[in-house]
Design a protein around this nucleic acid. Structure first.
Length: 423
RNA sequence: GGAGAGAUGGCAGAGUGGUCGAAUGCGGUGGUCUUGAAAACCAUUGUACCGCGAGGUACCGGGGGUUCGAAUCCCUCUCUCUCCGCCA
């Protein structure tokens, strides 16, 4: 969430910039400022009373000690009213604080200046692109290829779990594992320390990265234990740093993680979601960084370059989009999407989303750092990106590399798969 | 799953109703000494909010209660450890 101070100091700017995210902040910002003023004045009142109570209690203690019972009891009588008042104001204070936080959490992150205006996908701006478009005639879509070569079985997954939980088989499973290992190795080379995080997280973690309370319905919820299945490794990995104060010299912290990801995708089924295009469970390698605020945009570029190197090594035609205000997520300040071209579907598929959250997540996480010699901790910046999400990469690889003999495996993956063609 | 013990500052570990935001040790930081370092010695060392400041308030796992007053007593939740059971 945004910090109160930022909202107070930049009220007009916040309202103006959030228009790009198509969020009308006029009313809520006023309400927040009002609530905070109310909170402050109530707090001042309570604390004055508490101070009085504290000193009175000390007096009483002294009186008892020196045996002045009568005086002591007289003083005790005075505390009753104070107690009442404190209790009343205390309730008011916590109510105000709760309301304030409820409002604060509802304001999206302020987009960076370079976020383009726009309503949705169609207004995203292409920044750059690369790779060669495959020249194929009568390209077969991946959902037919996987049947032909028996490498992924959707029906079997449906039987065992439900739609959107495919079973990878034989060379399909092997290719999946090859991609995971390739992505992890590349991340390792780029200096990202690997972690294997839990796949279920508690409520605090869901809140820390912004999935809760906003996107509650998007996550699978294990209600018996009140745990959520992670929609992305971003959640557990970023939450490593919840309530942490780092040294400035430790920044940036770089992590990567492979995990299965679980998404309910409620209400989002329809056209364009055949085959591997949209799943309830999928694999992804995620990269996460905690950065110094002065460096976070430089680091965002580095992360984009890292992802670019991956799609290039896989020989996939790619393009990089800067998300417009209408398409960028609630918590991000700036997001780049990578898309790869899928030859048979003749469309671009999103395979990575790389974002700078500035201090929006850090403020929820209480993730701070201290400058050398400084006493005051300040909020760090968090960033993350997919590097990469597997299913659509798989889809594009299968479709783009199909030929008479079978499906050719990209050079870089052969050491991982142990075969160079699926036939 | 059953029984018991526990949760205190970066760490270890005192503190069982007031003088406790909290002893002591270690660690960290600054300094003295030294050619430099180590050792020793001295000082300093939690977070947040309010206030221009002096200062005030809150926090001893979370929440609630008793009391004029709670780290300390009571209830409850979570977590950790030990033993038993089950188990990859």
């Amino acid at each position: 969430m945004l910090t109160l101070k930022y909202i107070q100091d930049n009220k007009d700017q916040v309202i103006e910039r959030l228009k790009i995210k198509r969020f009308d902040a006029v009313q809520i910002v006023d309400e927040i400022i009002n609530l905070d003023n109310q909170r402050k004045s109530t707090q001042v009142e309570v604390e004055a009373l508490q101070a009085e109570m504290n000193s009175l209690s000390k007096e009483i203690g002294q009186l008892f000690k020196s045996g002045q019972m009568e005086e002591a009891n007289k003083a005790k009588a005075r505390t009753g009213e104070l107690k009442e008042q404190i209790k009343e104001l205390d309730t008011k204070l916590s109510e105000t604080t709760t309301k304030l936080n409820e409002q604060l959490v509802q304001i999206p992150n302020v987009p960076n200046e370079i976020v383009p205006e726009g309503k949705g996908e169609e207004d995203n701006v292409e920044v750059k692109s690369g790779g060669e478009m495959p020249k194929l005639e009568n390209a077969v879509p991946h959902w037919d290829l996987i049947k032909k070569y028996d490498i992924i079985d959707f029906e079997l997954g449906t039987k065992i779990t439900g739609a959107g939980f495919p079973i990878y088989k034989g060379k399909g499973a092997r290719l999946q594992r090859a991609l995971i290992n390739f992505f992890l190795d590349e991340a390792d080379k780029a200096g990202y320390g690997e972690v294997i995080p839990p796949l279920l997280v508690n409520e605090d973690s869901g809140f820390g990265t912004g999935q809760l309370p906003d996107k509650e319905g998007q996550m699978y919820h294990a209600t018996a234990d009140n745990l959520y299945l992670i929609p992305t490794a971003e959640v557990p990995v970023t939450n490593i740093f919840r309530d942490v104060i780092l040294k400035a010299s430790e920044l940036p912290v770089k992590h990567c993680a492979y995990s299965a990801c679980f998404r309910r995708e409620a209400g989002s089924w329809g056209a364009h979601v055949r085959g591997l295009n949209r799943l309830h469970q999928f694999d992804k390698v995620e990269i996460v960084q905690v950065a110094h605020p002065s460096e976070s945009y430089k680091i965002l570029d580095q992360m984009v370059e890292h992802v670019q190197s991956l799609v290039e090594k896989l020989n996939l035609p790619w393009r990089l989009l800067r998300l417009c205000g209408g398409d960028i997520s609630f918590t991000a300040a700036l997001t780049y999407d990578f898309e790869v071209y899928s030859a048979a579907q003749e469309r671009w598929l999103e395979v990575s989303s790389v974002s700078n959250f500035e201090n929006y997540q850090a403020n929820r996480l209480k993730l701070r750092f201290k400058e050398d010699g400084e006493k005051k901790a300040q909020l760090a910046h968090t960033l993350n990106g997919s590097a990469l999400a597997l299913p659509r990469i798989m889809a594009a690889l299968l479709e783009n590399n199909q030929c008479e003999e079978g499906i050719r495996i990209p050079e870089v993956l052969i050491p991982y798969t142990g075969f160079d063609i699926i036939k």
